[in-house]
Design a protein around this nucleic acid. Sequence first.
DNA 1: GATGAATGAGGTTTCATTCAT
DNA 2: GATGAATGAAACCTCATTCAT
Lengths: 212, 212, 212, 212
Amino acid sequence: MPRLSDEKKAVLESMTREALYEAAVGILREEGLQGLTMDRLAASAGVAKGTVYNYFRDKKEIVFFLAERSMEDVIRQVQALDLEGRDPVELLEESLDLLLNHMVEKRKTLGALFRTLCEDVEMREMACESRNRRPGHEIREKMTEIFRKGVSTGRFRPGNPVMMNAVFHATLHGIIHEFILHADDDADPSEAVAAIKDLILHGFCPEEKKKP
Amino acid sequence: MPRLSDEKKAVLESMTREALYEAAVGILREEGLQGLTMDRLAASAGVAKGTVYNYFRDKKEIVFFLAERSMEDVIRQVQALDLEGRDPVELLEESLDLLLNHMVEKRKTLGALFRTLCEDVEMREMACESRNRRPGHEIREKMTEIFRKGVSTGRFRPGNPVMMNAVFHATLHGIIHEFILHADDDADPSEAVAAIKDLILHGFCPEEKKKP
Amino acid sequence: MPRLSDEKKAVLESMTREALYEAAVGILREEGLQGLTMDRLAASAGVAKGTVYNYFRDKKEIVFFLAERSMEDVIRQVQALDLEGRDPVELLEESLDLLLNHMVEKRKTLGALFRTLCEDVEMREMACESRNRRPGHEIREKMTEIFRKGVSTGRFRPGNPVMMNAVFHATLHGIIHEFILHADDDADPSEAVAAIKDLILHGFCPEEKKKP
Amino acid sequence: MPRLSDEKKAVLESMTREALYEAAVGILREEGLQGLTMDRLAASAGVAKGTVYNYFRDKKEIVFFLAERSMEDVIRQVQALDLEGRDPVELLEESLDLLLNHMVEKRKTLGALFRTLCEDVEMREMACESRNRRPGHEIREKMTEIFRKGVSTGRFRPGNPVMMNAVFHATLHGIIHEFILHADDDADPSEAVAAIKDLILHGFCPEEKKKP
DNA sequence: GATGAATGAGGTTTCATTCAT
DNA sequence: GATGAATGAAACCTCATTCAT
């Protein structure tokens, strides 16, 4: 019967992990990154301080986990995009939609995470150590492909696809900070989203017909 | 007699302020935001810790001062732009040049400042309390005018000028974080700057002739 | 049937005890006393943390066990010395050889143990509670006999044998700390050993002929 | 009038230092090294925790300070010994008297300190980094001179003076631990002291006439 | 009996701010 | 107005021990 026991354990463990995730996200939303202390996190998740350290080596690992966890969905969605035989402009628009929706939904969490990731020197180095640890790198890679295709097929303006991709992400990054984060919680972000799409699509793709 | 004494005082005071500014910027550049403690600031400026508190109520005020001080130049430059009888597209490009140059020059300082300003909940509220306290608001206002003109004259794409302005600043903000901050100190940012200009100008202004 | 089962149990239990001993000694050797945490001990011995507590009430008991276990050999050897009809000087030298050899071999372990035993107030009291719990007390008792004989036969200098014995052990104790412990791992301790023997033998036994 | 002010400050500072020293010694005496936490030290000295860190960078520095401070007297005394034209045996006895008296007086403090110094890996390295930082090194150096003289003049037994010196100090070290520390607080240590002197003097100096 | 996740008291250190001189 | 020692809240992290499975 060890099978059952193991399963139970796994379930319990994942429950605690989940509780920690939820608690952390909640704190970020309400009090910002400064409120995310180990004490508060433990209390908010309903576990002892030491327990948190059974799940994460240190605070940095928690932020990493949060980052990865809160991007899981959108990473899957972007990765699921089939590039073959598709118009790069359409692909850019589709992925932009995915990303913007995701950002609107998780604005607070993402905002806090990006800031943490940028802020902490050690953490930035950790993230850059291996390309693969940088949260969201999968998205960047997929998008690079789209930019490459768009440029090579002439559907995008000429330019270095890698640089365009970087500018693209920088823009999204800025949007999170400046825009969504500062907006009132209840404000309808749809107008802003439209303006951003406009900038990006016109900015990268030459005139002609875009999705009306 | 009191007249002269007052002047002396003012001069001395402004010298200390200046020393504090220089010291703070130096620390930010070398050690990042985390290194900016009151102890280090005072020591680096060559004054006592208590003296810092004679000039600034608390740490937040210092960061505010830094923000304002390090944008003074570019604010003046942007404000000096004469909008009358000029082509909005040209104006957009000119101001973009001003802003990007400024950003490249002061990347480290600005990066640290923006992050602080975003991060701290209290500080954000303080900044929003009165429109006028938000550092750089003068630039935002001037740029809004440009966007308004561009849209109304048809030189820019149709849209809400206020929203476009916000997207514009968000993009610049993102650029600072993602781009300039992460780049190696010695990396030549000119290619990135070009890509950004491309995005912005094409993104906001309809095809036709742009500055070659 | 129960007989066999009991035996099995005993064997298993002693195996675990042995594993714990080996693991503890290994940790002491490599990382010093600070590395000896219950977590590391359990992991290193290949058992669960809780299991350790089935074998030892608490951490202090482990250190006690280590102390006793690592002196077992030398205790047996010293106890095996036949005092009857022997020259006390010879006996002193023989037992000194035994003890010094032992110390050189197990310097790291013994060093860590002695320090722990000295340090912890509770533990010291526990050790003194009953004479019999003090690790190595058998050696002390045997040596007292030798000193008694040596003094009463005039082969040793006059003095209180108990006090001489205490000084003798204190010296050995100091040697472990200062000498063997600090020496490089590869250093040849033979010169030091010779110097110690010299001090002890000349110090306790009046001139004449010693083992050349 | 800055002169007076500076003096006052110096006095105040040295008073706090003194208070910290006294408090630390008191804690060591009563609760052993484990009781010496920053919290307790601060409370016991009547200052805030942060204040302790204004005087010592970290805990290790405190222990170092204690070590140096509690050996100051005896270091001065030993250094004051005039080696010229004196009998090495007499010198050995005199310095031994100084050291033993000192040890009897400060047994608890010294015991705790030696143990700390031995125990902490980092600290041991710190002490050994430069010969000069090892507390008490002045004594060791002076004594080496005595041993050198004693051996070269034939007043001591033949042998490597450096090694003899090391054995000498190891013995004293062991004495502190085993002997004085374990003895009841009220016990008269004079008999023990006599036994130690006997061991050392006979151990290092060949028969003949010693101080009666 | 074995397991190892949970516990939480306790440790060290940092740093913005105050205030007597 | 300048000074900087004192403050103490608050942060992160460790680890011996317990206990439900």
